Simulated assay, not measured.
Amino acid sequence: MIDPARKAFLDHLHAWGREHGGMWNLNPEAAQALHLLALAIDAQRALEIGGSNGYSTIWLADALERTGGHLISLEADPRKVAMATANLQQVGLLHRVRIVLGDARQTVLAQPGPFDLVLIDADKESYIHYLEAVLPKLRPGGLIMADNVRSHAGELRTFLERVRSDPRLDTVELPFGPGQLLACWLPA
């Protein structure tokens, strides 16, 4: 369970993001599921594509604090990087996260694996690119969570077909808010 003070901060941060728009935060239940997954697989290295104001970043960093792991968060918007940095500092988790500013289509290529857990929650047209970039960097048994698979199913059709047709990926759709696809990497 997440620390009650951090949870209260996260509740405020999520509400603020909804009020002010443009933050594109995970649904709270999806964020909690991501936290639980990170704990369950004892994640040591995680990658977040689309950090926004740090909402999902804090959920992941809290889990990684417990497992002794670290997170790399990719974000293109300098304003959001500044918000995420301040929010992580406020909850005492900045030391668990390395935030990389830049276009994630480029910065994802420079991140060394292996990763235990990857969250994809960025520009929908690039999900297929992100998938292809992270699969070689995902450890066997590693997990990918992709957000917005119901709300943006049309835009993500190619990505969803690719993931669902790969015999090395075992998938399930989670029903929280805009929908998430959870995929486990099981290479031969």
Rank of each mutant, 00 (worst) to 15 (best):
N25I: 05
D103W: 06
H20R: 06
G68L: 14
D11N: 15
E132S: 14
E29V: 04
T57V: 01
F176W: 11
K80A: 05
D147G: 08
L156I: 01
G177F: 06
P78W: 10
L131Y: 15
L182D: 02
F115S: 12
D123P: 09
P187M: 02
D103V: 07
G102K: 01
K7W: 10
A133N: 07
S151A: 08
R162I: 00
H35V: 06
A188P: 15
H129G: 12
E65F: 11
S151F: 08
M1Y: 09
Q90Y: 01
L131M: 01
A153T: 01
F176K: 02
G54M: 09
K124S: 04
D42R: 15
L60H: 03
V91A: 09
A122D: 00
R105V: 11
H95Q: 05
I58T: 04
E132M: 11
F159L: 05
R98W: 08
I120C: 10
L13S: 01
L13Y: 13
G21A: 09
L39R: 08
G113Y: 12
T57F: 00
S73L: 07
E125C: 12
A40V: 13
L37Q: 15
L138I: 09
L117G: 00
D77I: 11
A40Y: 02
A84K: 10
L101I: 04
A104N: 11
L74T: 04
H152V: 02
G22Q: 05
E75F: 03
R139E: 07
G69M: 11
L74R: 01
G21N: 03
H152N: 07
P136A: 13
H152L: 07
F176R: 03
G21C: 09
P28C: 00
L156E: 02
L39W: 11
D62P: 06
A104T: 06
E132A: 13
D121C: 03
